[in-house]
Design a protein around this nucleic acid. Structure first.
Length: 365
DNA sequence: GTATGCTTTCGGC
DNA sequence: TTACGGCCGAAAGCATAC
């Protein structure tokens, strides 16, 4: 296969940066974007924060009360996340990115891969020019900065964009890839979290250079065929995962925090009813029915439990979703003697309703 | 034993 | 000192069929 040119674009501290754009007086101050649980006070978690807040140790996922503690002596701003607004900004930015790619893959609200092999004719200098042009265009249209990584595959492009942020451009040519990642810690490799890192550490593997020298059979026996092969190849700068368009969502879910912890099914069912109503209207308005339904619970000790069911024919009404969800919930509550803090419902195995144009139809028309 | 498909958990943002 | 969201996609885990 001829050498590819892959670009990864990451919008910097996205939610907090959107807030700075909407209200420029926030710049220079620590900004913490929060999702409140609805239990009152500071109950909830930090979604993201700007770099001024990060300097004080604020991190995504942290309890809001802890972030307030870290920022107690500072003039900081805490905001409730406005997800609809961020989605709208994201949609406009993705439309800019899409038109510069041969193949475009939207990974999340703030991240995308672009295969630009043909657009650049395989020339890395041209790719760097294109990255600068994209950054300028996003700045002029939305006042947003982003970080861009360019490399011969998705893994190298992602690690390149992580290398210099915020507002960076990092170019790694094919012959530089192995050297660029060699001395980084293994957990810089996408897909290596705390668990894999610890196992590797026990094998005496700390850096990606160490990982690249391992016997691939040994990695496969420890991590399985798929992850073992991935680790071995990625550590050696190789990754053949294609950039591919994601035209349709694969699941929808909605989860809420109860006003207070409960183990009473009648109480929890009230929330499930409401969630099903809301979720069904969202899924239906986007033209989908679904063959799988799952309920998710989070206990008072923050452990997660789920139950799900798959049917041969798609479910296509709120009533069906509610009745399946409550049945799954009662089964879960019988089997697990836990106090529930949060409850949610998920639908997957989506099927497009008849007569609905797919996103693919729309984009290619 | 292996392939397949469904359920549950994990991890990133 | 503690504190704790709402999504998503994909991997891991498990059961079943052959």
């Amino acid at each position: 296969m001829p050498e590819r040119v892959v670009m990864q674009v990451d919008l910097d501290y996205f939610y907090a940066q959107c807030e700075e754009v909407r209200n420029p007086s926030l710049r220079n101050k620590p900004v913490v974007v929060c999702i409140y649980s609805g239990r009152g006070g500071d109950s909830g978690a930090v979604s993201t924060s700007n770099y001024a807040a990060r300097r004080y140790g604020v991190r995504s996922g942290m309890p809001i009360a802890r972030a307030k503690q870290l920022l107690r002596n500072v003039e900081a701003v805490f905001l409730k996340a406005d997800l609809d607004y961020y989605d709208e900004v994201s949609r406009r930015v993705m439309n800019i990115l899409r038109k510069h790619a041969d193949i475009f893959e939207e990974v999340s609200v703030d991240e995308a891969y672009l295969d630009v092999t043909e657009k650049t004719k395989g020339d890395y200098e041209a790719a760097k020019e294109l990255a600068l042009k994209i950054k300028t265009e996003i700045m002029e249209a939305e006042n947003l900065t982003c970080s861009i990584g360019i490399g011969p595959n998705k893994v190298i492009a992602k690690m390149a964009s992580d290398y210099q942020k915020p507002n960076g451009v990092t170019l790694i040519r094919p012959d530089e890839a192995v050297g660029f990642i060699a001395e980084l810690s293994v957990d810089k490799l996408p897909g290596v979290g705390a668990k894999t890192k610890q196992i590797l550490e026990e094998m005496g593997v700390k850096t990606i250079r160490d990982l690249a020298k391992q016997d691939p059979q040994k990695l496969i026996s420890r991590f399985g065929l798929k992850l073992g092969n991935y680790l071995y190849n990625a550590a050696n700068g190789r990754n053949d995962e294609p950039v591919k368009e994601r035209l349709e969502p694969t699941q929808f879910s909605r989860i809420v925090t109860l006003k207070q912890d409960s183990q009473r099914i009648e109480e929890i069912e009230k929330y499930v009813d409401e969630i099903c109503r809301d979720l069904y209207s969202r899924v239906s308005s986007q033209g989908y029915v679904f063959k799988s339904v799952g309920v998710i619970t989070v206990s008072d000790s923050l452990s997660t439990c789920t139950r799900s069911a798959t049917y041969e024919h798609p479910l296509d009404s709120y009533e069906a979703l509610r009745s399946v969800s409550t049945a799954l919930l009662s089964r879960l509550l019988e089997e697990e003697k836990i106090k529930i803090r949060r409850v949610g419902v998920r639908v997957s195995d989506l099927v497009k309703k008849r007569g609905q144009r797919t996103l693919y139809d729309f984009l290619t028309s």
